[in-house]
């Protein structure tokens, strides 16, 4: 029951949002967009592992 994945994602989200604002204020909108996308990809990588665990559990549970 590791809830720290939720905290990791929240921390990543806050970090990306702050970084985004800083880069936009600094006049580099493209880099801001790129960092947001990079953050999204990293978090997506974490979440995909949980999604695959969910689907494995459901398949074994309901023998789909």
């Amino acid at each position: 029951m590791d809830i720290n994945i939720v905290f990791q994602i929240a921390a990543a989200g806050i970090l990306i949002a702050v970084l985004n604002q800083v880069l936009i204020r600094a006049g580099r909108e493209e880099q801001a967009m790129m960092t947001t996308l990079a953050g999204l990809v990293v978090v997506l990588y974490w979440v995909i592992q949980y999604i695959s665990k969910l689907f494995e559990t459901v398949q074994t549970l309901f023998n789909l």
């Binding site: 029951m1 590791d2 809830i3 994945i5 939720v6 994602i9 929240a10 990543a12 989200g13 806050i14 990306i16 949002a17 985004n20 604002q21 947001t36 953050g39 999204l40 978090v43 997506l44 979440v47 949980y50 999604i51 665990k53 969910l54 559990t57």
Partner: peptide, 21 residues
């Protein structure tokens, strides 16, 4: 996180749902 980055709020909702299940 809904206002600044809606994508991450969806990720958090998804992960919390998976953890509970």
């Amino acid at each position: 996180l809904k206002k600044e980055s809606p994508q991450f709020s969806l990720f958090i909702g998804l992960t919390t749902g998976i953890l509970i299940f």
